[in-house]
Design a protein around this nucleic acid. Structure first.
Lengths: 230, 230
DNA sequence: TTATCTTGTGTGAATTTTACACCACAAACA
DNA sequence: TGTTTGTGGTGTAAAATTCACACAAGATAA
């Protein structure tokens, strides 16, 4: 490591990004955590993250961290809050710009990274490092708000999915229960799903129709000033 | 100015806050801008803002800037986005955490600050400095989203207001038109307004009932898992 | 076969939204 | 003084949507 130093007239905080990576296993919403190998908070779990390079935007930094951790490029991420309590990191003043990512669990390559990474269902999240509990709860809050206006849920499902899976996802995110029939009608009414062929997916009691998200139809609707309102 | 310098092993960006201050004049949504007296972007208008001190949170910094500019303490502010393009400030790498504030125009003391400050209606906003156009459009987007879930509009109105003023405000923020009768019914149905006595307010054609926002009722409703859905 | 679980579809009642209509009142005007 | 005009308050009926079920069919397991 070179010994070059950077000097400023006024104190500057360090800036990091942290990325709450959401996945969906078919029934429950999950987050990807890494176990900290160094002090402080050694042994506790935390969201992947790291310092923002001086010539990259925070978004690029978050995407870089996401790729390092999951192998995914160009995933869906969204900035949701910046955490800046002066004492949130004991080492030095660190401000973190937090993003959440929506990924398909099955696309994430197993943790061949040095750091031990693991998926946790929301109910089973262990104690987290720093202020990451606060980060998680804010991420959830924002995800729940956002899903009312944009069809972000599809980022979490495989290309082809059944209406039931979609309903499970909405129920998991919003922590509510919908009537099966009414959910189907409402969803199909938006006309943003393309019906495909059929197959027996997760619990093969009876064949279920498969659908895919129709981005073109959605953009048309959005053009006309449309609101999802789920 | 002392000659003390601060050194770090890695380059650190500077961190500022910018505050989009919204007000409402009874008909149109306004923003408070200050004219830049120094290069870069000298002569252009910008949102009030400044560097975050090393021992204060960004929110505290934004509140401090807000008070310096308007004299208001403890106003309603909300963080909405952090802007971090590497070249957004030509001087050095500056990351800005942006807030919007909702204030009552009539409570803002005239610009006795050194900087020239002025209210602009949204349609009349001049060319802005740096990436502040982007900041404004993001602020608006977020304000419009937020107003569907929380009764933030009341922060912009005087203590006592008529239903019509409230409707004007919603129409100004969302840029839509509501039916007068239906708007009234819907609003009263939420039971978060307290009816007061009467008076002739802005255009005294006929006496209009005055209302105030009832925070207690609102908190009760929120407790029961209620959604505003406007 | 029968019981059970699941998907797909239908239906009617309850509720909400929407688009108007009507009247009252006060100021402006001829 | 009588008429017009703009605003506030209330009512109402049709349309649309939500909500709570019902029921049939396919598939599996005992």
């Amino acid at each position: 490591m070179e010994e070059k130093m950077y000097t400023y007239k006024y104190p500057h905080p360090a800036v990091t990004t942290d990325c709450v990576i959401f996945g969906f296993d078919g029934m429950r919403l999950q987050v990807l955590l890494v176990e900290r190998g160094l002090e402080p908070c050694k042994g506790k779990w935390a969201f992947p993250g790291g310092f923002v390079k001086i010539d990259e935007s925070c978004e690029d930094g978050a995407l870089r961290e996401l790729e390092e951790e999951t192998g995914l490029t160009g995933a869906y991420i969204e900035q949701f809050h910046t955490f800046s309590a002066p004492d949130r990191d004991p080492r030095e003043r660190v401000i973190t710009v937090a993003y959440y990512a929506l990924v398909r669990i099955q696309d994430v390559k197993a943790g061949d990274d040095a750091a031990k990474a693991e998926w946790f269902a929301l109910d089973d999240v262990p104690q987290l490092a720093f202020d990451h509990e606060k980060i998680l709860s804010m991420a959830l809050k924002r995800l729940r708000e956002r899903i009312h206006f944009e069809p972000i849920g599809f980022e979490l499902l495989p290309e082809k999915f059944t209406i039931r899976q979609l309903q499970n996802l909405y129920e998991a995110i919003l922590d509510v229960r919908f009537d099966r029939s009414n959910f189907t009608k409402k969803m199909l009414h938006f006309n943003i799903l393309t019906q495909l062929e059929e197959t027996v997916w997760p619990t093969p009691k009876r064949e279920a129709k498969l659908y895919s998200f129709n981005n073109e139809s959605y953009n048309e609707l959005k053009q006309k000033g449309f609101r999802l309102e789920f």
